[in-house]
Design a protein around this nucleic acid. Structure first.
Lengths: 133, 133
DNA sequence: CATTTTATTGAAAATCATTTTCAATAATAA
DNA sequence: TTATTATTGAAAATGATTTTCAATAAAATG
């Protein structure tokens, strides 16, 4: 598991270390509020603002991913490696998929558009197993 | 172009008609604020709250689509027919793609997950022509 | 057509995730 | 060890969206 390396451009603070450690422990893609609750159990003096700032910071350092849910709050992923995300439109949960071995999209209109899709972190929206009812 | 049909479950108001007509005129996927500005030119007495409510209402009637941009505000599409959307991560613009003739995603993990992706309104995130720099 | 019912409207206030402000603190350079 | 300044925490600000509530007006009813 990656750690925050020393660097003359930023400071390695206990708050940042705790936020990184806590988010790396789970695969639930927690919201900032949920990370805050996890972090509070380790050090109750850490504020919500600091959690938001640490998450932004860690994302810029490419140690975590920030995922914008369709609903409202952003969600965070402690694994910054290339993988796919499945967003449930009903419950808002986000699942990982690692073995997306082949994604093929054929579209002349897409080619003509000049748009460059990001397939490394492909996002699929739909309904998850639990919500399919 | 579809219109709002009479129905005993809701009322056909001038506000709802204007919101629908205005959003059907453009293919820019405007935000609620932008729709508000368009609507204001037709009838300056219509409030922003009513625009939000009309957009929600029209989406429930399947006359428009609501698209959640990665950034912040929702965007609306006056065409509710099956098509694909390209979201630019930089400028936030949303483009349509209609001829997505073949989308193929191979993944055992996806199959096992029980997740049902919505391919009819596939969303691709990436960088648009103008922002590719 | 007149009347009644109640869904809809508009303005203002509330909400809620996130960001900013600012003085105090502490990581790290000197 | 001291000095520098990035980072922190609390509170206030922000901005999109939603809710409240009294007034209005669709459309059902007589």
């Amino acid at each position: 598991m990656k750690t925050l390396p020393k660097n003359r451009n930023y400071r390695v603070t206990p708050q940042r270390k705790i936020v990184l450690e806590e988010i790396q422990k789970v695969c639930t893609h927690p919201t900032a509020q949920e990370v805050f609750q996890m972090v509070q159990k380790v050090d109750p003096t850490i504020g919500l603002t600091t959690v938001y700032r640490s998450l932004d910071f860690l994302e810029k350092q490419n140690l975590i991913l920030k995922l914008q849910s369709k609903n409202k709050e952003a969600r965070y992923d402690g694994n910054p490696e290339k993988h796919c995300h499945l967003f449930c439109k009903k419950c808002g949960a986000v699942q990982d998929i690692f073995d997306v071995s082949d994604v093929k999209i054929t579209s002349n209109e897409l080619k003509k558009s000049g748009f460059t899709p990001e397939f490394d972190f492909l996002e699929l929206h739909g309904i998850c197993k639990n919500c399919i009812s």
